[in-house]
Design a protein around this nucleic acid. Structure first.
Lengths: 145, 145
DNA sequence: CGACCAATCTTGACTCGTTCAAGTTTGTGG
DNA sequence: CCACAAACTTGAACGAGTCAAGATTGGTCG
């Protein structure tokens, strides 16, 4: 749970200043994949004491735009963040409770990245969200059969 | 631009009451693919005069949950709606201006619908969003080369 | 055809995730 | 060690969407 030594290196390599809030946010995202901003703020405050929510929003934006964390936001959900970046994985989202799990696409390294007709767009990423029901929700809503 | 005759049938077949706001919203979504709620409200008011925004929100929810329209919401965007349903198509979104175009996936009818490890989730849909740059934005940001 | 009732619509307030703005603090290069 | 821009704090504001209470209205049944 302590600040991981790699965080500082990660920040420096992205040309970002190394500050305590940034280290804490980076560690929080590593420790809690798919956490939303509120959860990250709570985690950061556990480590550092008072940190403004604005600081966390700023840090998350800086980390996201520098590729150190990835932001995901399924429909009907607030923004969530994760530390797995650059490995082309996707997500399953439960329609009932909103829980998220990672999945690696079955079709290879860059699945679906070629569209039939791209309308002239230059495509650089294919984001896949699988919608369904998680085991817990399936169990609680299913009849006894 | 007049209310299409099919709208009424569509509503009745979904067990929904046929009202003027619903017809107008359905037509608006047909006429303006990927429109957001504000645009739909404007379009509906052009046809009917005053209609409350709450009515439009209610109608869109009813239509969405009955499968008559599809709701999409890319990150950093408000909710958008379209009338193409049930044909498994996906979307390209421009990172710069947010414009959206339809694409049919190259990999077949239900691309990527099988994940390697689904973590026990029951998957019923795979939503794909291609991120990139639209022709207009590519042209305006590129050097003269 | 007319009345009833639940579904739908109107009005208006409100929530909450996120952003904006101004001023203070702090990391980093020189 | 200093200076300065980047980063943080504080507090207000924004806006898409939701909630709630009461008025209308579509559809059904007698």
């Amino acid at each position: 749970m302590a600040t991981s030594p790699g965080s500082e290196q990660l920040l420096r390599s992205a040309q970002l200043r190394v500050t305590r809030p940034r280290m804490a946010v980076l560690d929080a995202v590593h420790d809690h994949p798919h956490a939303d901003t509120e959860q990250i703020i709570a985690s950061v405050r556990t480590r550092l004491g008072d940190v403004s929510h604005q600081a966390v929003y700023d840090v998350l934006r800086a980390l996201t735009s520098n590729g150190l964390v990835r932001r995901i936001q399924p429909s009907n959900s607030v923004a969530r963040y994760e530390a797995r970046v650059g490995d082309n994985h996707h997500h399953v989202v439960c329609r009932a409770c909103g829980s998220i799990a990672d999945v690696d696409c079955a079709v290879g390294e860059t699945p679906c990245l070629t569209a039939n007709d791209d309308h002239g767009f230059t495509i650089d990423e294919a984001e896949v969200i699988y919608w369904g029901t998680c085991p817990a929700c399936a169990a609680s809503s299913a009849p006894s059969s």
